[in-house]
């Protein structure tokens, strides 16, 4: 009889074990997502660990435009940030972006935006772009695999995409990023 009971006990423990294992996995994923080491959305980013796609974008006031050649020629890491004036998370992103800009240059690409709107956005939010380009057609964003704004790419010297974030950079993420550099 006691054998039967203990087998039942084991069986009834199984759901708890399964749920616990799944929970641990989810916890690991979440902490990875917060630290930037795990991004389930990377599955669709075709550009990670690849050279930056070819492009040459005109300047957007108040900054100077740039091309893929400029990124390849860089000697330090650069954060490339796609934004738009019509995007609310981009406004929220500005202060954390300033934290990042204290450590490495942040280059902005205005995605599908009117020139005066983008200029107004930069002036209003104080977004810290060292160089600023305009992607009015949105074609460059497609080559980069951008799914929406804001989206950020960390470019290694030599023009290789090292890290990618779809969505706004939060303050904790910015701090983590700066600490890792």
């Amino acid at each position: 009889m006691s054998g039967v009971v203990s087998r039942r006990r084991l069986l009834t423990l199984a759901p708890l074990g399964l749920a616990g294992a799944a929970g641990l996995g989810f916890w690991a994923m979440l902490s990875g997502m917060r630290g930037g080491s795990f991004d389930p959305h990377d599955i669709q980013a075709p550009v990670l660990d690849r050279p930056v796609p070819e492009f040459d974008l005109p300047g957007q006031a108040p900054g100077r435009g740039f091309s893929s050649a400029d990124l390849r020629a860089a000697t330090g890491p650069i954060l490339v940030n796609f934004f738009a004036s019509w995007c609310i998370p981009c406004v929220i992103e500005a202060p954390p972006l300033a934290t990042v800009a204290g450590r490495l240059p942040v280059w902005g690409i205005a995605y599908k935006d009117r020139a005066q709107d983008a200029a107004g956005f930069v002036a209003h939010t104080g977004a810290p772009y060292t160089r600023l380009a305009a992607d009015r057609s949105g074609l460059t964003a497609i080559d980069w695999g951008v799914s929406g704004v804001p989206e950020s790419f960390l470019i290694r010297p030599g023009g290789v995409i090292a890290w990618h974030l779809a969505g706004p950079i939060t303050q904790s993420l910015a701090d983590a990023l700066v600490a890792r550099l």
Partner: peptide
């Protein structure tokens, strides 16, 4: 993800608690 951590904790309490009770009492 920060919200996710909160919900995960909540789920752990609700689901984990129920399943623990199940393991203890169901037999």
């Amino acid at each position: 993800p920060a919200r996710g951590v909160f919900i995960l904790g909540l789920l752990g309490l609700v689901i984990g608690g129920a399943l623990l009770l199940f393991a203890l009492r169901a037999p």
